[in-house]
Nucleic acid binder design. Sequence first.
DNA 1: CTTGAACCTATAGTTGCTAGAGACACTAGG
DNA 2: CCTAGTGTCTCTAGCAACTATAGGTTCAAG
Lengths: 146, 146
Amino acid sequence: MLTIGKLGAQAGVKVPTVRYYEQIGLLPKADRSAGNQRLYSRKALERLAFIRHARDLGFTLEAIRDLLSLSDRPDQSCAAADAIARAQLAEVESRLARLMALKAELERMVVQCAGGRIADCRVIEVLGDHSLCATDHRHPEGEHIA
Amino acid sequence: MLTIGKLGAQAGVKVPTVRYYEQIGLLPKADRSAGNQRLYSRKALERLAFIRHARDLGFTLEAIRDLLSLSDRPDQSCAAADAIARAQLAEVESRLARLMALKAELERMVVQCAGGRIADCRVIEVLGDHSLCATDHRHPEGEHIA
DNA sequence: CTTGAACCTATAGTTGCTAGAGACACTAGG
DNA sequence: CCTAGTGTCTCTAGCAACTATAGGTTCAAG
């Protein structure tokens, strides 16, 4: 049995975050010691590592909740898990495309700032004029960059 | 003079967001009509477009606050603006690198899910085992991961 | 003149944590 | 056995950057 500190260290998750995951029901309520301290099994560590890894991959806690509930019923088709991962992949690809465009624009901005005065600064100028922008900045559903 | 709705529409910013920007001091307090409704000049529209564009580029509101205060004093060196833009570029490049790694891993996950049962699902499996992960997940600041 | 859209304020909710206060529990050394 | 120093407990509040809701007012069109 692990205390919350060891658990967090082994999973790479901070202690308050573990308690937070319990609070929102992503982790089950932990068993307690005689002195009311949380105790975790190896299984709990695996579950937490799963969460940690999925977070690293950019899954939302909601998606992770779904994946966890799927993995709790291992006899069903994995189509649902696949769908979640595919959606996540699409998300990542779109973020990637946007970021590459942004990188190009930022590079243009930075290159053109040659130590002049602000009045001539491309950084300010480019930011002030959307029409100079090569990127497509339409936001179909009011969503922003993560 | 524009009402808040027209302003928002022209800048591509939602009305509550405009009010929020005023509240946190990113936009100056707007003039009001006889009936207490906000009225905006062309200049205010430009300022808002600047903010919108910078947000699209991933600048934080704090960075934007700095850029705006710079652009209010156009006689100074643009070194500061350049520094902000360069920091932003570095941010974007690092996010880009991470996202590309994530994309590779997600693709691996998705490809390997061939319509089997969850028990064999790579999506779940890969998420459960950090060691299968190609990505570098080290945490630079004194975090001990076993 | 009336309807309905757009506006107003104020407050609370969102996501995914993080930080603080003040109190209790456990462990190692003397 | 005592004490010091961690680690843990609960609870509350805060962060970014909005978004949503409630309940009211103003404005422009028909």
